[in-house]
């Protein structure tokens, strides 16, 4: 990676304008993974001065500034109780503390990384992203959106819900990216099931969700069937970490375990 210029901006407007001034201008969030890319950045835009690293708890949501580090989010007391702490747990599995002290929640979302352990748990929660120009958009819509126009992510809003959730990341060692990750939430009688690192970008298992949400009672048979449906509907792939078949098998195993846990 090469950076030709560096600008610490004083306002979101300045950041937005600078970002759109040149195709090769880019926001540097934490910058933890930037080194791995071979991109040339004309002007790196630093948002450090904009106090976007605050986490604010409102009556019905947590508003996380885009520049909050993963470690900040992980350690935030209020979030530890939301969806029985699934986000904190998921973040704690990402690399080591030194990386989580640098990587930001905004950078982790905006990159739409297919290996992400941030997106998978967030997807089963009720999450909105707030952009400077585009305004609010749900995380789900953002992930499938083809809109490539550049904007500044300002905050990530997680709505408070009375809900339970489960997250599991299958990894080879403590520093590994996910081979597959699974997140499940249950709010009242509604389940959400998301599977990431398949190895492609996280997705809902919509048919499995429909099946389990229609069931009168979530029995062991329903759980097994739900996992089977998810295994069938989701596309898995092979890379050096694991084969398609193995990914499917472990995703199904963890969907079963997750469902059992959230109905407890």
């Amino acid at each position: 990676m090469k950076i030709n210029g560096y600008q610490t901006v004083k306002s979101l407007e300045e950041a937005y304008n600078l970002l759109n001034e040149n195709k090769q201008n880019a926001i540097v969030a934490g910058g933890a993974w930037m080194r791995l890319s071979s991109k040339v950045i004309e002007t790196a835009i630093d948002l450090s001065g904009l106090e976007l690293d605050q986490i604010v708890e409102t009556k019905d949501a947590f508003e996380i500034g885009a520049m909050a580090t993963l470690r900040q989010v992980e350690k935030q007391e209020g979030l530890k109780n939301l969806y029985n702490g699934v986000l904190s747990k998921a973040l704690s599995k990402i690399m080591g503390v030194p990386i989580r002290n640098v990587a930001t929640i905004g950078g982790s979302i905006i990159g739409k990384y297919s290996f992400s352990d941030v997106l998978t748990p967030l997807l089963v929660m009720n999450v909105e992203l707030e952009f400077y120009k585009k305004g609010k958009i749900s995380l789900e819509d953002f992930l499938v959106s083809k809109d490539r126009s550049k904007d500044v992510l300002v905050k990530v809003i997680i709505k408070k819900e009375e809900a339970k959730a489960y997250f599991h990341k299958m990894q080879k060692t403590g520093l590994d990216f996910a081979v597959v990750n699974v997140a499940i939430s249950k709010k009242a009688d509604t389940f959400k099931i998301a599977v990431g690192a398949r190895p492609s970008l996280v997705k809902f298992a919509l048919e499995a969700m429909a099946f389990v949400n229609d069931a009168k009672e979530v029995t062991e048979e329903v759980i097994l069937e739900t996992a089977l449906i998810a295994g069938k509907e989701l596309k898995f792939g092979t890379n050096s970490k694991a084969s398609e078949e193995y990914r499917r098998n472990i995703a199904m195993a963890y969907i079963k375990r997750g469902l059992r846990e959230v109905i407890k």
Partner: peptide
Amino acid sequence: DNSSCGVCTVLFDGKPIKSCSLL
């Protein structure tokens, strides 16, 4: 060179970070 091994750890405002991955 890519944020994995930790031998370049320093404290940044008191918190450990990998200096190879901070501009």
